[in-house]
Simulated assay, not measured.
Amino acid sequence: MGYTVLTPEEAERFSVSFKALADPTRLLLISHIADRRCEPLTVTELTALSGLSQSTVSHHLKKLTKTGLLAKKRSGLKVTHYVVAEEFQKLSALLHLT
């Protein structure tokens, strides 16, 4: 895959994603999801795994979902959050400069 120069719009979109990932709490939550083979997890599960409060986890999941790095799925009362693989693949391709 060859590298191409970004448009200003692409640069803006990628910068939003990188800003979201620059937060240590968000990286921690992403790492817990990745550690479970990117299986969808609930706020309750992520709260237990991370040791953070429910409100903190919810806040950061909302930020990651807003950027498109995570998505959520509702099944009855249960809401799970999962990694949007395509978005991480785009970030990875951008970082692969050599």
Rank of each mutant, 00 (worst) to 15 (best):
S58K: 09
H32T: 01
L70F: 10
K19Y: 15
T80P: 05
V83L: 05
M1H: 13
Y82K: 01
H96C: 11
A48Y: 04
L77Y: 13
P8H: 07
G68Q: 00
G76K: 08
L64A: 04
G76N: 12
L95W: 05
L77C: 09
R26D: 05
V5C: 07
F88S: 02
A71D: 08
L52N: 09
V16L: 15
A48K: 13
S55K: 14
T80S: 15
F18W: 10
L21M: 15
T67I: 04
R36E: 13
T44K: 14
S53I: 08
Q54M: 06
V83M: 06
L27T: 06
T44L: 09
L52Y: 14
M1Y: 09
A71R: 14
G2H: 12
L6R: 11
L6N: 11
L61N: 03
S55M: 12
K72T: 02
L70Y: 01
I30Y: 04
H96F: 10
T56Q: 11
L28W: 05
E39L: 10
K73I: 09
L94K: 12
S50N: 10
L61M: 03
G2T: 11
C38M: 08
S15H: 12
K72R: 14
K72W: 02
T7G: 04
K63H: 10
A85N: 07
L61W: 00
S55N: 14
F18R: 09
L94M: 09
T67M: 05
S75V: 08
T98K: 13
T7R: 10
E10P: 10
G51Y: 06
P24G: 05
K62R: 14
L61S: 00
V83K: 00
V16A: 12
V16E: 15
L70N: 06
V43S: 09
A22W: 08
S55R: 15
K90H: 10
R13D: 15
Y3T: 11
L97P: 03
T4F: 15
R74V: 06
P40W: 05
L29D: 01
H32L: 14
S58W: 03
H81E: 00
K90F: 08
L28I: 04
K73P: 02
E12T: 11
A11I: 01
V57K: 05
T25E: 11
L6F: 12
H59W: 08
L41H: 00
Q54Y: 12
L64D: 00
